[in-house]
Simulated assay, not measured.
Amino acid sequence: MTIAVDRPAPTPKPEHDPSRRSKTELAIFGLVVGLPLVAFAAAVPFAWGWGLTWTDVIIGFVFYIVSGLGVTVGFHRYFTHGSFKAKRGLKIALGVAGSLSLEMSVLDWVAVHRKHHKFSDKEGDPHSPWRFGTSFKAVTKGLLYAHMGWLFEAERANREKYAPDLLKDPDIVKLHKAFIPLAAFSLFGPAILGGLITMSWWGAFTAFFWATLVRIGLLHHVTWSINSICHVFGDEEFESRDKSRNVWILAIPSFGESWHNLHHAEPTCARHGALKGQIDLSAGTIRIFEKLGWAHDVRWPNPERLAAKRVAA
């Protein structure tokens, strides 16, 4: 991994070794991001059989896949960037699935993300990790802000300004108004399913813990990592006007969203992981929708445009 810097890079202070500082940053944020995941993985075998069962795993997995793809395929690639066109049934299904992530309503999510692209890593960006400067202390503060601090800001992106097209769509407005009941289903649906399947209150409780709390927490941190980590660490393979980067380790849990550099180079492209070996589960899902006839006019990568934007090795 490399760390993104301004071009030209600011002259470091004499007392600091830039290469050592980069390693220090990588170590710190590797711990911040990695330790909770390691702790979670370690907790699984200890809880297996009494606090975690296959019922919890299956319910959590299904809700993670549905809500995660609802965000990446629906909220992001379809509603925000128009990477493809969808039949009405798929449009509504994607809006419902994305709402189950509890990240925001479809209108607010789209407005924030469009504003992010307009001001990416510049003044006005809702969650740039570079908002406080380029020093170690500033980037540390910026990463924390970009990851989740920005969510506590009172000001929200203006829907009329950044999502006027969606405000004209009655289906989208209804989905926006239905966010609370959809969120309630996402919170309590797993517990209801767990209780009914096991016919016990304990089954309801463990399903709520793993398939609701852990599932939502994991999905949120993966999504927020695209805002924070993928704008500081990783590889730059395409020219973009910001500091977006690719972070391969997040590719699977983010459904391909962590191939973030190409996305910022070609925002409307339906595939973010366009190079060999770059797994993009969201693009694969869109391909299935296309073959089923549910999606059309898909904006797949153009080889000539990609070649023109490749960063020289």
Results as ranks from 00 to 15, higher is better:
Pro8Thr: 09
Lys137Gly: 13
Glu123Asp: 14
Thr2Asn: 15
Ser101Asn: 00
Ala308Pro: 00
Asp242Gly: 08
Asp56Asn: 13
Pro12Ile: 02
Gly273Thr: 05
Phe40Asp: 08
Ala295Thr: 02
Ala138His: 06
His116Lys: 01
Arg131Ser: 11
Ala183Phe: 13
Asp235Gln: 14
His117Cys: 03
Ala204Leu: 09
Ala157Tyr: 06
Pro12Glu: 01
Ser240Arg: 07
Gln278Thr: 07
Ile229Trp: 11
Pro301Ile: 04
Ser225Arg: 03
Ile172Met: 08
Glu15Trp: 14
Ser282Asp: 01
Arg245Ala: 05
Pro45Ile: 09
Cys269Lys: 02
Ala163Leu: 05
Ser254Arg: 02
Phe61Asn: 09
Gly60Asn: 07
Thr55Glu: 11
Ser22Lys: 13
Gly273Val: 01
Ser258Gln: 05
Arg305His: 12
Val57Leu: 15
Arg245Trp: 08
Glu304Lys: 12
Leu262His: 15
Gly293Glu: 04
His260Tyr: 04
His81Leu: 07
Leu35Pro: 01
Lys177Ser: 14
His260Gln: 02
Ser128Asn: 03
His127Cys: 05
Leu144Asn: 04
Lys122Phe: 14
Thr206Leu: 02
Phe84Asp: 01
Asp165Ile: 04
Asp297Ala: 11
Pro170Cys: 11
Asp108His: 13
Ala265Asn: 03
Tyr162His: 04
Val66Asp: 02
Trp48Ala: 10
Ala265Tyr: 05
Pro45Ala: 11
Phe289Ser: 07
Ala307Leu: 11
Gly293Asp: 00
Pro10Ile: 06
His127Ala: 01
Lys291Leu: 15
Ile172Val: 14
Ile192Ala: 14
Gly195Glu: 06
Val232Arg: 01
Trp54Thr: 12
Gly60Gln: 08
Gly68His: 04
Phe238Cys: 00
Thr24Leu: 15
Leu250Ala: 01
Glu257His: 00
Asn227Phe: 04
Glu25Lys: 12
Trp294Met: 09
Trp109Gln: 01
Gly95Tyr: 06
Phe188Cys: 10
Arg156Leu: 13
Arg241Ile: 12
Thr212Gly: 10
Asp56Val: 10
Trp300Arg: 02
Thr11Val: 14
Lys291Gly: 11
